[in-house]
Design a protein around this nucleic acid. Structure first.
Length: 510
DNA sequence: CATGACCAGCTCCCTGACTT
DNA sequence: AAGTCAGGGAGCTGGTCATG
């Protein structure tokens, strides 16, 4: 386990010895040193002594290779926030509620004290190749031309060449567990009215082949009418698809066509040129099908969707709102890496400032939604930490939390604290005696229309009459324990398990 | 039996504005 | 300021019907 983590990070560390050494050294170092600067000197002193000691015992030669790797590992983490090694994470849960006609907002801070390995550090250039535990199959000769060729006799044409990047991506879906299947979106998972444009000539070719399978007395070489009848596609559509250049067909109809040809849907994947809808057929060109969110970019997008972004309820569109252009750019890049060449619109507020971005393609919103990003207002519904993150490897988890921190968090470098904020509605859970408290809370007015809020602190408690203090404590405990949204509990668990840190949930504001 | 005309219905593009 | 909801116009296919 430990070894995996080390290996993951540096790709060079190996052997139990290195791990043991690391543990011993770190223990000594945290024990002896109290300030970051002093600790560095102490560390090298201890480490040097240890090395000298090994040499004296003539053991150095056996471990030299491991030590070398270990030193490289140290060099690697030195630049990151791992170095002082203790980073605390505070996650804040903001809860909102409506009381007495007006809306009061309840903010709960989820605090997480933690120790995170290079957590805050930027994504490294040496981005690791994603490791798929289920293995990948090569897209061998099963080109669609060959497949169709089995049915009739065909010759190959250059334009049918599958997209080379897709060859690498074909995953054996049958073996995948349900959550993994959901984090992967195939073209046939898209809405049935989504439009698929195939590479030049492919659609016509498919229809011609299908037509050959449908001879009639009047048309012994195959009839469109008969094919229409057999496949369930309207004859007018087939006719147009055959005669029009670049005709885009709906997912629904392409499925019907492939069924008629007895071809598996996956065979068509490499021949898809673009995906879109009625308004615009090229929302996504050169789609990287299947759209796979089980990687670092996917994790970034899932976090972006759960925090500063959202998936529109009525149209399943992914929108990301963030005034930091850098963040927006990063999200766009991740979208491009996961989905292909994607169209989008920047959003500006009334003052003309860059506010965020909207990705118009329904496919993107759908893929995120399938992976676990809820649609619509997140504060008012229960949702879970998506399985992609829960079951993802350490790189995926890091990527997720990095994006989380960028969106709804901040880092206190001096205190080695990371805070993450999460808002949630608690109005439906509070009891009537809790409401009595509200008369005594020091509400502040946040510009008229925003309503009132209280920042919870020790001082607030002193203002509560003593007979209501137990009620107040009960209220706070509820906020800390029972009213916490599932996702926050799960995030806390993941942080603690993965990064061996202490996470604290702290009610912050009402 | 194949296809053109036509409009219904859908998604996308773009923008505005409301809620918390 | 950070999310969320809303909707019109554009552009495209689906489906119906008529025509040759």
């Amino acid at each position: 386990m430990g070894r995996d983590i080390l290996k993951d990070r540096s790709g060079k560390i190996s052997g139990a010895m290195a791990v043991l050494l690391a543990i011993v050294v770190i223990l000594l170092y945290t024990r002896v040193a109290s300030t970051p600067k002093g600790s560095e000197d102490t560390f090298y002193f201890v480490y040097g002594t240890l090395k000298w000691f090994l040499k004296a015992l003539d053991l150095l030669k056996y471990v030299e290779e491991y030590l070398k790797s270990f030193e490289e590992f140290l060099k690697y983490v030195q630049g990151t926030e791992l170095w002082p090694l203790i980073i605390s994470i505070l996650a804040l849960v903001v809860m909102e509620l409506a009381v007495m006609g007006a809306f009061y907002c309840a903010l709960v801070t989820v605090g997480t004290t933690t120790r995170v390995l290079g957590f805050v550090s930027e994504v490294r250039d040496n981005r690791k190749k994603f490791h798929d535990p289920y293995g990948k199959s090569r897209f061998s000769v099963s080109k669609i031309v060959a497949a169709v060729g089995r049915l009739g006799k065909l010759h190959r044409s250059k334009s049918y060449a599958p997209n080379p990047s897709i060859r690498e991506k074909v995953v054996k879906l049958k073996k995948l567990p349900p959550w993994r299947r959901l984090s992967t979106t195939e073209w046939w998972d898209l809405g049935e009215n989504q439009l698929i444009t195939l590479k030049e000539g492919v659609l016509r070719h498919l229809i011609m082949e299908a037509k050959k399978l449908c001879p009639t007395k009047l048309a012994p070489k195959g009839s469109i009418t008969k094919l229409a009848e057999r496949s369930g596609i309207d004859s007018a559509i087939l006719c147009r698809a055959m005669n029009q250049e670049d005709y885009a067909m709906t997912v629904k109809n392409i499925k019907k066509l492939l069924d008629a040809l007895h071809l598996s849907y996956g065979e068509l994947t490499p021949y898809i040129k673009s995906i879109g809808g009625g308004g615009f057929r090229e929302s996504i060109t050169n789609p990287k099908l299947p759209f796979d969110l089980y990687n670092e970019d996917g994790a970034t997008l899932v976090a972006a969707g759960l925090k500063d972004g959202h998936v529109r309820k009525d149209r399943t569109i992914f929108e990301y709102i963030n005034y930091d252009e850098e963040n927006v750019r990063r999200v766009i890049e991740s979208v491009n890496r996961v989905f292909g060449d994607v169209t989008y619109q920047m959003r500006y507020d009334e003052k003309g400032r860059h506010k965020g971005v909207v990705f118009n393609s329904e496919a993107i919103g759908l893929a995120l939604h399938r992976a676990g990003v809820p649609k619509g207002r997140k504060t008012e519904q229960d949702y879970h930490l998506p399985d992609v993150i829960k079951f993802g490897d350490i790189a995926i988890k890091k990527s997720y939390f990095k994006q989380y921190i960028r969106d709804d968090g901040h880092i206190d470098y001096r205190g080695y604290l990371i805070s993450m904020i999460n808002a949630h509605e608690i109005e439906s859970s509070i009891k009537s005696d809790h409401r009595e408290l509200f008369d005594y809370l020091p509400w502040k007015n946040r510009k008229e229309q925003f309503g009132y809020y209280v920042t919870l602190s020790k001082w607030v408690e002193t203002r509560i009459p003593s007979e209501l203090k137990p009620v107040y404590r009960d209220f706070i405990i509820n906020m800390k324990k029972t009213w916490i949204p599932d996702i926050v509990k799960e995030e806390k668990a993941i942080l603690e398990r993965t990064f061996h840190v202490k996470a604290k949930i702290v009610p912050k504001q009402i």
